[in-house]
């Protein structure tokens, strides 16, 4: 029992530490988690960590939270997952609580307000940069369905103001259909080759 308590404590402190000092979200935290749980603690195998990463990235929600759930579950079952969720969620919860308590004062201070106004332009640039990179890949793929989906989704949300949830559900359904069709085609080709 003492040993398992130690495991839970280690899980909690590791995820708390990773979450408190990782700027830049999910794509940064995963390599750090790998280092912690695969290299340092040797709790998870290299290949398994890669697969867990794939699951974390394919699931909805924050990648850091998803990865933490998987690691906690893998190491100590469902209670382990609860512990790692707590460890991952607490730092942002505490930090943002503090910021939001001083937000009113923050906003009414002319200097900080000017700082935030300047940063807004920077945030816009950061987001447009991400879109540029991701959208560029879609355009370069010359996959006409993807390009069409991208344009239609933009029109639907920006001009038609459709609820984002419906757009995502529709595109997910489209993804299922395309995957099934591709699977059939490949199977048909395999058959053709084997005959």
């Amino acid at each position: 029992m003492k040993k398992s308590l130690q495991v839970y404590w280690k899980l909690f402190t590791s995820t708390f530490y990773l979450s408190a000092f990782t700027f830049g979200g999910g794509f940064v935290i995963i390599p750090l988690m790998r280092k912690k749980f695969v290299t340092d603690l040797d709790w998870i195998e290299e290949q398994e960590m890669l697969d867990l990463t794939a699951i974390a990235q394919s699931s909805p929600g924050a990648i850091a939270v998803n990865a933490a759930i998987l690691v906690g579950y893998r190491v100590a079952g469902f209670p382990g997952a609860l512990v790692t969720i707590l460890g991952t969620v607490l730092p942002p919860l505490i930090i943002l609580s503090c910021i939001s308590l001083v937000y009113e004062w923050f906003r009414s201070n002319a200097w900080i307000s000017a700082l935030l106004r300047g940063m807004q332009a920077g945030v816009a640039a950061v987001i447009i940069d991400v879109v540029w990179s991701m959208g560029g890949k879609v355009v370069k793929s010359r996959d006409w369905i993807s390009i069409l989906v991208m344009c239609a989704a933009f029109a639907a949300t920006y001009w038609l103001k459709l609820n984002v949830v419906f757009i995502i559900l529709f595109c997910a359904a489209l993804g299922v259909v395309v995957t099934i069709c591709k699977g059939r085609k490949e199977r048909a080709q395999d058959k053709g080759e084997s005959e």
Partner: peptide, 12 residues
């Protein structure tokens, strides 16, 4: 299938 749509939503 979702990726292009996500790009569009982020763009918006």
């Amino acid at each position: 299938g979702l990726r292009p749509a996500i790009v569009a939503l982020i763009a918006s």
